[in-house]
Nucleic acid binder design. Structure first.
Lengths: 333, 333
DNA sequence: CTGTTAGCGCCTTCAA
DNA sequence: TTGAAGGCGCTAACAG
């Protein structure tokens, strides 16, 4: 019902040349006479020959495939990163194997194992931290790896992100400048390096600079979900906080709506700054003021860096901090 | 700086058996004495041997990899589908190669070509229609393909989705039952089969059943973006429509906010039903009434169906219509 | 239960 | 500029 898989050998025979020659024209090798090249190309076209990437991968030890470890594709932050990665990857003729890890230590390890077994030429890692075991595995392989959007406290792995600590500090400072002294810090798990070692540090730095004492009671650790935020609004209502820095948009939306439902007037009674600037920020009413993170660009730049690493090019700088901003909308005065 | 790649041959030598035996234990083949199996396993562990999936793929003609053609990972509808696909895929030990197509005919064709070159064992196709050229290519390959979340007007390809026409009809009927006679139909491009041949048909069917004349002026074709919706609110304001069926959530959110900003009271002056039930529907104020689509499940079921096809199992039914619902929230009375 | 022997389809020296 | 030949690492008969 279908023609058998046609191979480089078939093309060689039909074209009256050796398979080596076919291989050369397929790979754009220079040393082929134009005439024979045309002849081969014609046969390739006629036979509808399609090189087998698996065989090619085995022989050349290059698969033109990169692995992407992502906590969850349905998370807008990560899906934007992934899009940037894929666009640049396809630009350089790479495909990506996408694997969800749920940010789970064991799954990550397992996914990495799969990826390496599949002989990916490189890996883009996304996550909210970098566990020691994984870091360990990373150092045991010579497949190049780049962190996209995440943080590496130990500065060992090529990384593309923004300065989360500085961004957080800026956001909190903005709140302070608006007259607030009781500012809540709301994020996901403080087990995650990005929250514990960067965002929280930026928050503290802002307070310190303003001479405001750090108050443990204003630090809230929760899930990155709308409902978690909606419920947290209750708790918040019981504190003397008058503003909040929030680590994720969906969470912020929940807090905003929860507060509003309780009759709190945002931004007049309470101000909020969130951290990602996903589409959500424009959809809520009032619209969310937010740190703006160039997610797509981080993904794209990380992938670009990876192509260099895979090509054994020298990386001038393996730790790129992209510019961020703060977009004022309606949850701040 | 790193130990050379260790192969099945190294393991065989160290364990004092043939590579065939090692292959057997690695592949869980039954015919191996427990003693030698243990011995081999020990060596594998000691040497930290990891089977090369590329070589395995070449020899066995199976890559345990499936290709996923997706319009855009950052679209919540598709990313949920993709998550369902990946979860089931990994459950069956498959990896997925994710490729964005932007729903573009040429990109799709090109992506398909790549996927086939990489010898994927199967393909999950996502899109808002199925162009003839692509359908053509699909029929020229014997790699199994399943459509996830999309529609195939010609009923040729295994598909998992919901009955979009019926769902739309239900939604519009709900609006009619609430007393509306001028109901706008707002969707993305009518070039797309899903809109032209299913949603619009469902809309017309509802009108007809209620004896309401179809009015071309109430059909709006636009982009699936928040801003498109926000601007469309203007146009809508100029018509005599008192309710709207909207084909996507982000678009609906734009319309809702645009209308609200113009002083229209939703749902009292205007009712809206949207189509996907993404998280957005709970975040807008008022919250959006919506058709609920089991996106994750569609992806999961599609992938499950694909595993059967790849395993040459018989598919009892290649066209699965999953149940949907309508969730009443605050944009309808 | 285990070993031998061919390939799988292509790349890549090495010669010619 | 082109061809011959030897792998890449593993699976899959086929023997024994």
């Amino acid at each position: 019902m279908e023609k058998e898989n046609i191979t480089i050998y078939d093309v060689a025979r039909e074209a009256g040349v050796s398979m080596a020659t076919v291989s050369r024209v397929v790979n754009g090798n220079s040393n082929v006479k134009q005439a024979t090249k045309d002849k081969v190309l014609a046969v390739i076209d006629r036979l509808d020959y399609r090189p087998n990437a698996v065989a090619r991968g085995l022989a050349s030890k290059k698969t033109t495939t990169v692995g992407v470890i992502i906590p969850d594709v349905t998370d807008m932050f990560f899906s934007e990163l992934a899009r940037g990665v894929d666009d640049v990857a396809s630009m350089y003729h790479y495909n990506i194997i996408l694997a969800n890890s749920d940010d789970s230590g064991t799954k990550e390890l397992q996914v990495l194992e799969n990826l390496l077994a599949k002989q990916v030429d490189g890996i883009i890692y996304m996550g909210n931290g970098l566990r020691d075991k994984l870091r360990d595995q990373f150092s045991h392989t010579n497949v190049p790896i780049v962190l996209a959007g995440g943080v590496d406290e130990k500065n060992q792995i090529p990384t593309v992100n923004i300065d989360y600590a500085a961004a957080t500090k800026d956001a909190v400072t903005k709140l302070i400048n608006n007259g607030h002294k009781q500012i809540a810090f709301i994020s996901g798990s403080l087990q995650q390096a990005i929250n514990q070692n960067y965002r929280l540090q930026g928050y503290k730095a802002a307070l310190e600079e303003a001479g405001i004492a750090f108050d443990e009671a204003l630090v809230f650790e929760t899930q990155y979900t709308y409902n978690a935020g909606f419920e947290l609004a209750n708790e918040l209502y019981g504190t003397d906080a008058t503003a909040a820095f929030v680590g994720a948009d969906e969470l912020a939306a929940g807090i905003l709506n929860g507060l509003t439902d309780r009759g709190v007037d945002v931004p007049n009674d309470f101000e909020i700054i969130t951290s990602i600037n996903t589409k959500l920020t424009q959809i809520t009413r009032p619209q969310l003021t937010s740190i703006s993170i160039p997610m797509y660009d981080m993904g794209a730049v990380a992938m670009r860096m990876l192509t260099k690493l895979m090509g054994k090019e020298n990386i001038e700088n393996g730790r790129l901090s992209l510019p961020y901003g703060i977009i004022s909308r309606q949850t701040t005065r």
